[in-house]
């Protein structure tokens, strides 16, 4: 009887082992704060204007990750970590997209300035 029960518990533990193992996964606090930092940095260069969709996705994923951590269910922690990691790269992509666009605008402005100067020097030559 108790032998049966012991066997049952053993088998159950064996079968659910991997699942139960997940229960010991800690809350992805570091991943969340990394994503938050990346979002703040992207915000500081006004990435919303240059990459609105990526910023939106990053923020939603981060919010979802934080909500899962708040809920505190152990089995959600893997998903929370993945969401936070995805939010991080999405925010970094938005950040670099914005930087690339700003750099391109600067290049165009410099080009226009140089063109104007060249025109001016050309006029003076005549």
């Amino acid at each position: 009887m108790s032998t049966w029960r012991a066997i049952a518990v053993f088998l159950l533990a064996l079968a659910l082992g991997p699942t139960l193992g997940c229960a010991s996964v800690p809350a992805p606090n570091e991943e969340i704060s990394n994503a938050e930092l990346a979002l703040r940095e992207a915000d500081s260069i006004n990435a919303v204007e240059h990459a609105p969709l990526q910023m939106r996705i990053a923020r939603e994923k981060l919010d979802e990750a934080k909500a899962l951590v708040r809920k505190g269910e152990d089995e959600d922690m893997v998903e929370a970590r993945r969401l936070a990691e995805s939010a991080l790269v999405e925010a970094q992509l938005a950040d670099q997209t914005a930087r690339a666009e700003i750099a391109d605008q600067n290049r165009k402005e410099a080009q226009a300035t140089m063109d104007a100067m060249r025109r001016e020097s050309g006029l003076n030559r005549n």
């Binding site: 990691e85 995805s86 790269v89 999405e90 970094q92 992509l93 670099q96 997209t97 930087r99 690339a100 700003i102 750099a103 391109d104 600067n106 290049r107 410099a110 080009q111 300035t113 140089m114």
Partner: peptide, 25 residues
């Protein structure tokens, strides 16, 4: 995540190239 990092690298290259061109101009 790796694919996103490739996309990030593309943007970084675009930005750096534009910056280099601006400096040259």
């Amino acid at each position: 995540l790796a694919e996103k990092r490739v996309a990030i690298a593309e943007k970084v290259a675009m930005g750096a190239q534009a910056q280099a061109e601006t400096r040259k101009l």
